[in-house]
C-alpha cells in the first residue's frame, strides 16, 4: 500500500521536497539576500544549461562523450571578447539599443564561429571513433588540450577583463529588493533558447529525425536519412550553444581565461549526470539545481561551494543511476 502511494506520488513528493530544500537557505539569511542569490543561481543555471544541453544531446544522439565541449564554451567567451573589443564603442555607449545590438552580434558571431569549430572537431576527431567510448574520451580529451593551448596562442595566456555593456550593469529596485539586471537577461536568454530547442525538436522534421535518432540511429539510416550529416549538424549546434553559454558567463563574471572551459566542463558533466544523458529538459533541471545550490552554499559556506555539487551528483547516482530524466534509450 505504502509502496503504491510512493509510486503514484513519488515525483510530486520529490518536487515538494526539492521546494522545501530550496527554501531552507531562508533560515540563514534575510529575504532580499535570498532573492538576490536565487536570481544569481537561476542565471548561473541557465548559462550552465546552455553548455550541458549540447553535451547531453550529442551523447543522446551519437553516443559520444565530448570532453572538448568545455573548450567550445571558452571559445564562445573569447570570440565575444574579440567582438566587444572591436566594437568597443557599442559596449561603452549609454544606449540600450546599441548595447543589445552588440550583445546580439556577439551571440551570433560566437555561435557561428564555434559551430564551425565543432564541425571540424566532429569531422576530424570524433568521426573516426564512433562506437568506442574509450577512444572517444581519449581523442576528445586530446582535442580539449590542443584547443585550450590554441586559445593561449591566439588570445594570449593571461586572464582578461570582459567588459559589460553599459546598460547591462545596474539594477532594479522592486519593493526594496535589489534585482540585478544582467542575471535577468541571462535567465530570459536561457528560457528562449530552451523554448527554441523544444520547438525545433518537437515541431520540425529535422527535430523529429534527431529525436528518432536518439532512440535508434540505425533505423533512421535505414529510412533514408543521412545520419552522419545530422551528427555533424547536431555537434555544431551543441558547440554553438556552449559558446553562447560561455559568452553570457564571461559577461557575468567579467573575465575570460584560457582554462575556463575545463572548469565549466565539470559543471556540465555533473549536470548531465544529474539530469540524465540525452534529455534536454533533464539538462535544464540539472543546471538549475546546480546553479541554485552553488549560489546558496557559496554564500553560507564559501569553501564548500564546489563540493556541494559533487555531493548532489553522488546522491543522485545512489538513488537513480540513470539521472532524473533518462532519455529514450
Amino acid at each position: 500500500m505504502a509502496q503504491t502511494i510512493l509510486k503514484q506520488w513519488g515525483s510530486k513528493l520529490a518536487i515538494a521536497g526539492a521546494i522545501v530544500l530550496y527554501l531552507l537557505p531562508l533560515l540563514g539569511m534575510d529575504f532580499s539576500t535570498y532573492m538576490t542569490l536565487t536570481i544569481a543561481g537561476l542565471a548561473m543555471g541557465m548559462m550552465l544549461f546552455l553548455v550541458a544541453s549540447g553535451l547531453s544531446i550529442i551523447f543522446g544522439l551519437m553516443d559520444v562523450i565530448n570532453f572538448a565541449h568545455g573548450v567550445c564554451f571558452a571559445y564562445g567567451a573569447y570570440v565575444a571578447f574579440s567582438v566587444f573589443k572591436y566594437l568597443n564603442a557599442w559596449v561603452t555607449a549609454d544606449s540600450v539599443f546599441l548595447n543589445f545590438g552588440i550583445f546580439f552580434i556577439a551571440i551570433v558571431a560566437a555561435f557561428i564561429v564555434v559551430a564551425v569549430v565543432g564541425m571540424v572537431v566532429e569531422r576530424v576527431l570524433v568521426r573516426r571513433v564512433y562506437g568506442s567510448h574509450l577512444f572517444q574520451i581519449l581523442i576528445t580529451f586530446g582535442g580539449m588540450v590542443v584547443l585550450t593551448e590554441l586559445i593561449r596562442i591566439i588570445w594570449g595566456p593571461n586572464d582578461e577583463v570582459m567588459p559589460k555593456p553599459v546598460s547591462f550593469a545596474g539594477n532594479w529596485n522592486i519593493f526594496d529588493i535589489i534585482i540585478l539586471k544582467y542575471p535577468i537577461y541571462a535567465i530570459a536568454l536561457g528560457l528562449i533558447v530552451y523554448a527554441v530547442i523544444q520547438l525545433i525538436l518537437k515541431k520540425t522534421k529535422v527535430g523529429k529525425i534527431v529525436r528518432a535518432g536518439v532512440e535508434n540511429p540505425e533505423m533512421v539510416q535505414a529510412m533514408g536519412h543521412n545520419i552522419f550529416l545530422i551528427f555533424t549538424g547536431v555537434f555544431a549546434v551543441g558547440a554553438g550553444l556552449a559558446a553562447v553559454g560561455g559568452l553570457t558567463m564571461a559577461i557575468f563574471n567579467l573575465q575570460v581565461y584560457p582554462d575556463m572551459g575545463g572548469a565549466y566542463l565539470i559543471f556540465a558533466f555533473i549536470i548531465v549526470i544529474i539530469g540524465g544523458l540525452g534529455s534536454v529538459t533533464g539538462s535544464l533541471v540539472g543546471a538549475l539545481i546546480v546553479g541554485l545550490s552553488y549560489n546558496y552554499v557559496a554564500y553560507l559556506l564559501p569553501s564548500l561551494a564546489v563540493g556541494v555539487n559533487i555531493l548532489i551528483m553522488v546522491i543522485i547516482l545512489l538513488i537513480k543511476p540513470t539521472g532524473l530524466f533518462a532519455a529514450g534509450k
Binding site: 567510448h133 555533473i270 569553501s303 564546489v306 551528483m313 547516482l317 545512489l318 540513470t322
Partner: peptide, 29 residues
C-alpha cells in the same frame, strides 16, 4: 562503489569531477 553502479562511461566523468574538486580543494584551502 559509486561509479561502478552506473554506465561505464560515467566513470570517466565522475572521476574527472572528483579530481577537479581535489585540485580546487588543494588550491583553495
Amino acid at each position: 562503489f559509486l561509479s561502478l553502479r552506473v554506465k561505464a562511461i560515467f566513470f570517466a566523468m565522475v572521476t574527472l569531477a572528483i579530481a577537479e574538486f581535489a585540485i580546487i580543494l588543494a588550491t583553495k584551502l
